[in-house]
Design a protein around this nucleic acid. Structure first.
Lengths: 316, 316
DNA sequence: CTGAAAGCGCTAACAC
DNA sequence: GTGTTAGCGCTTTCAG
């Protein structure tokens, strides 16, 4: 590929002038501008982005950290980010971590070595203390609430959401309430779910909590564990509609009817939940992704709370 | 941030030596290596990736072009790509195009300006003639079959798949066969679906084909159009299980029973289809994504056919 | 308006 | 083993 020197030479001008026409600088005579333009077309030239980035110290490329396992929730988040990035001419790099703290750190490192202008933290396996220092190299935006004033965040009040759900279930007359979560107590949502449970429902029978649930398969496994318990839970709060769908399937397969024999409520208002008419709480992940992106390119450290929404359907 | 010169100076060596220890070059005395290493840690230094990329002429970053609308199919593809990229220490940038040919060209342009080492074409709105020239700037791998020997591809034989489905439906005794597609005839899959229909079923009553279907909502709309026709189709072949789920919902809402009153078969074996027990044909999009990635980094122009799979369930 | 020249931060001959 | 030096391809003073 031709470079800026080739263009300059062939157009009979200096590289500075070529650079000027490339960047729309007005201080170029019409004659030279035309000459340069012609040669550019002739040689099918385009500026090398790496060189430009190197000198500009900006890439217009951001990263989104997520575990990327079979969890549609993160796809929703990503869609939100993409919605906005497309308008703003930013490109976004997906950074899957599989919840591996070391890998997560390596992703954050891309801020330090100037590969990325900023990072949206869709998931997190490290302590904030390990993460925050990286904000010195580029903007970091989280999708969960955090106090650190170096980190902007677009979040939903998970604790309030969990409280609401458990209260709703109590109000519906449920006392044997079980639930599933993704990771164990290393995860913020799990911890908050447990807290909310304790506050509204009371002591948690350990067997009423099934971990490592991400997909429909996991939901089936969870149901297999939960539905043969004695006493059997009267309702299961699933951490995602896909997991809820798995529970639903298994419940049906052993002849349980909804919501009489078993109630189910999921999360994120995903297609499978809509199809099955499962109650759910929508944490508006797409919106979170969009707002996180806006914070990021605005280099804002604001904390934006996004409302959640209980969607009541006959499964409950 | 400190740069390589700072390190060299402080360690009392030349930049060449620093570069050598950075890149694991063996021709460095243990003493100097240790000294350099110490200063690197002291200054918390890390090499600037843009500078390295500029000189190495390689980014280890690839792009995946996809429309990114509410179509889970492309998420499957992306997951496949990510599965492999994560192992190979490549990063992947998502390039959403909304099926806009101009935007698609701008994405391909990222090859020319050296932002990307290669591109996986998950979707395509331009003619091959417009796309192929870009392969001179970087590897392009397609997820559909193409003759062009500059382009490697991981694909499923869509035509065979469509023939199979239509034949299956005929064998089941259906004669009034309707279907949905995403885009119109600009799309390859649509064109092939139409061809297969003609070959197996015969002349297509225009009202038996509903376009612009991506989501469950679209499925509902399609069903609303199709199920009040006279004669009503006895089966609908949906271009995705989510669309199928929408059709299912609407059919139920007007009292139709599956598969007696209406049969449904979808595509891609997605959670919603599993939950609803919808027959489907799995085009193994995850696998396609994985293979496409392998082709890409192997700079291979091979054509890899991935098998599809009919999954019979009681909706048919 | 225009060009010379000094970098951006790094790698890789090449010579010693 | 090690340092000098010439780039990679571009932007941006600074003079004129």
């Amino acid at each position: 590929m031709a470079n800026i020197n080739d263009i300059a030479q062939r157009a009979g001008v200096s590289v500075a002038t070529v650079s000027r026409v490339l960047n729309g600088n007005p201080y170029v005579s019409e004659a030279k501008r035309a000459a340069v333009q012609r040669v550019i077309e002739e040689l099918d030239y385009t500026p090398n982005r790496m060189a430009v980035d190197l000198i500009r110290k900006e890439t217009r490329n951001i990263g989104v950290i997520m575990p990327y396992n079979n969890n549609q929730a993160f796809d929703q988040l990503l869609h939100g980010v993409l919605n906005r990035s497309v308008e703003q001419e930013y490109s976004v790099t997906v950074l899957p971590t599989k919840y591996d703290p070391a890998k997560e750190l390596r992703c954050l490192h891309m801020l330090k070595n100037k590969q990325l202008d900023g990072i949206i933290l869709g998931s997190r396996s490290n302590d904030w203390d390990a993460i925050v220092p990286y904000s010195k190299y580029g903007t970091i935006v989280a999708c969960e609430y955090t106090d650190h004033h170096e980190i902007g965040c677009a979040y939903v009040d998970r604790y309030a959401s969990y409280l609401d759900v458990f209260q709703l279930l109590r109000d519906k007359g449920h006392s044997r309430i079980a639930f599933t979560t993704a990771r164990g107590e290393v995860s913020n949502s799990t911890r908050l779910t447990l807290q909310a449970y304790q506050q509204i429902v009371g002591e948690l029978p350990p067997e009423y909590h099934v971990q490592d649930c991400y997909s429909m398969e996991d939901g089936i496994r969870a149901a297999r564990q939960l539905l043969h318990l004695n006493p059997r839970p009267s309702v299961i709060y699933a951490n995602g509609d896909e997991v809820g769908a798995g529970i639903y399937r298994y419940a049906q397969s052993i002849g349980l009817e909804l919501p009489g024999d078993l109630a189910i409520i999921g999360q994120e208002n995903q297609p499978v939940g809509i199809a099955l008419n499962l109650a759910t709480v929508d944490h508006h992940l797409v919106s979170i992704g969009e707002q996180a992106f806006d914070l990021l390119i605005g280099k804002s450290k604001t904390k934006i709370e996004v409302p959640y929404e209980l969607i009541i359907r006959p499964s409950i």
